[in-house]
Design a binder for these strands. Structure first.
Lengths: 206, 206, 206, 206
DNA sequence: ATCTAAACGAGACGGTACGTCAGGTCTTGGT
DNA sequence: ACCAAGACCTGACGTACCGTCTCGTTTAGAT
């Protein structure tokens, strides 16, 4: 089940302006909301059929605009967390990292939080290369970029040793986060955030 | 599809010595081998039916001893990598870590390596809580333990700062590994191993 | 495996005119034809899977409209023999009965005839009360009615003694037919038809 | 699932008198009793596994002596009804027939009677030619013979017309019985017995 | 005001894999 | 050699969900 593009289907710009009935924005909203609701209630109960029924929509209306249920959920997720990325980096690095992680953990771990959803999407990315691409580019990459920005600011403030491999550091931090989320061998609480932030800060200290 | 226990079903030791036909060890081997073969060839083409056919075995014989195809593959994987864990830690820490990561990356990335299989199992653990448990306990935990041992040796050699949160460090290192494996945004090569090892070693240096 | 209703699922007439894709009549035909073919070739090789494959149809499409393979075959049989019932009764009774039996025996005994199929359906009716009902009502009852009509005509012509229990006579005649078909201790040939017709005619003669 | 021989497995008479442990007659009884119990309780719940469990016996012990569960049940049935055949024929024919039918109907229709069992065996005979043979020879044939004897006595008493096809008459009578048992469109009560007997007697009257 | 192409709710369709079930055979260790 | 237990192979079953394909209806923009 390859998945390739997201929401708006490819429409060559120069073709014809438009004809026929316009897309029903209400249906789009209903679908996204239904998908997110179902995902938060019980990820395993998420299916195109279920989304369609809850949204009061035909299955084809979903397949017309998305290539799979995961594309739907990802789009819903992206809308929901669009403004969540706090990029303020007032320094020092350890504090910025701790804040970043604490905020992220909060959004994930809160009851009704996005944790199960994120896990499910990451899981699907392992099975569907097409989805893996948009998952990587639209969800993971921005979060890596946000962390890179925080680290870059620290570099600018001269808080770091020279020759730092920022990319690797980002992977250490985000990796720890995801690893704990996916394996559930340790909690994602504030203590964890502080521990990880402290280690990461020490790793780059001059 | 909940998954709970692994291969040998719970048989209280004191109950009865045994009666009836004994388990066919050949069949067990054939099943595990078939599962591993199929998984390495094409993880997505892995199904109970396919395993049964290739192993020359009835489906029921698989369901009698395992709860899902993932239990089978996990057991096969565990047998295959049982002795892979190199726990030698001659120090210094950075070198030990680099070796650990390099070896691990090699087993994963080699053509015909276990990378796709690991990804698929990690993915399934997100969907099946029962499998998640045995995955965590039988596969992930031993690898965390191996790393903890390496770090513990470094502590013993006095290479580390006091007050180190070893668990968090393990999660940074393994997390980075898994994060790159799952998201595929960066290669798992020797340079990556060295980068990660260097950062980790710095993070704990006194 | 209870079986309850036949082909068209109950749709209350006043509810809704219809929505969604209409039933595919071609598929219906293919299924019935495939079922009948398979049944005539080898009743024991009849299975939902086989029907589906030969009809070029998904199994679900069969289960959507019928409750079991026997419902399918019965419907196919009913279509095939719909007009087989010769109800002409020119008298005298013995001749009419002989003709009725001869024709029936021919349809049953002919190579590629419905004999094995009828036996299989009668057998299944013993195991599935739901199927027994439609079998009785849709297949057996019409044949009893046809015989009753023949006998009724003879009564009208004054060929019979008063106080005749027509139902019992029908059961004697059809019973003899089925008994021989099911037990196979004696042939179903024209001589048999004449013997049975003669005895039945004598039984009701004034 | 062809079924061929009944209880005692083919043992060439001249071979060896006997060696090894003797057949466990208790097990045989337990098996037959368990089979009959299950058959009378709920024919559909009858299976080799179930019989074995209730008899406290291994499945193999059943398959060693019988070829299928139906052979078992048939043997149990034959033991149970061995002496049921009342062959007294004091005349006149109509009365003898009525008595024969009434007694048979009673054994079948009584709650806990053999009706469902007979139906199930007749059904199985349609699916298994091997069983059909022993069913015909060991169960049906004796009952036909009993009726033939009754009719033969009537012939001897000069109650019948010349040129009577006794076989056909038997099939009319037993056929009516079986037809009503298998299709259940009419009761098997005393009135039915009298109706059938009356018609049959008239059919052969001089 | 009409025409027309597209979107829509509904739901039937072909397909794949699943997990279950019963039948009949084979093997173990004990009697 | 028999037995109870129970693992084994086989093959069909009925279910679930997927993604596609009609239906007949609705709606917006072009004419």
């Amino acid at each position: 089940m390859p998945s390739a593009a997201q929401s708006p289907p490819p429409r060559r710009p120069g073709s014809r302006p438009h004809t026929g009935r316009a897309r029903n924005e209400v249906a789009r909203r209903e679908i996204l909301d239904a998908a997110m609701e179902l995902a938060l209630e019980d990820v395993s109960g998420l299916g195109v059929e279920a989304i369609a029924v809850r949204a009061g929509v035909g299955k084809q209306t979903i397949y017309r605009w998305w290539t799979s249920k995961y594309d739907v959920v990802l789009e819903a997720l992206l809308e929901r967390v669009r403004l969540t990325l706090s990029r303020t980096s007032s320094g020092p690095l350890e504090k910025d990292l701790a804040r970043f992680l604490t905020e992220t953990f909060a959004g994930i771990g809160r009851p009704g939080g996005t944790g199960p959803l994120l896990r499910s999407l990451m899981a699907h990315a392992q099975l569907d290369p097409g989805f893996a691409r948009i998952w990587r580019e639209d969800f993971v990459a921005p979060r890596r970029a946000a962390l890179l920005e925080i680290i870059g600011a620290a570099v600018g403030r001269g808080e770091t040793a020279p020759g730092l491999d920022s990319g690797a550091l980002v992977d250490l931090v985000l990796g720890a986060l995801w690893f704990r989320l996916l394996v559930e061998h340790a909690p994602l609480d504030e203590a964890a955030a502080r521990s990880i932030a402290a280690l990461a800060a020490r790793a780059v200290a001059p």
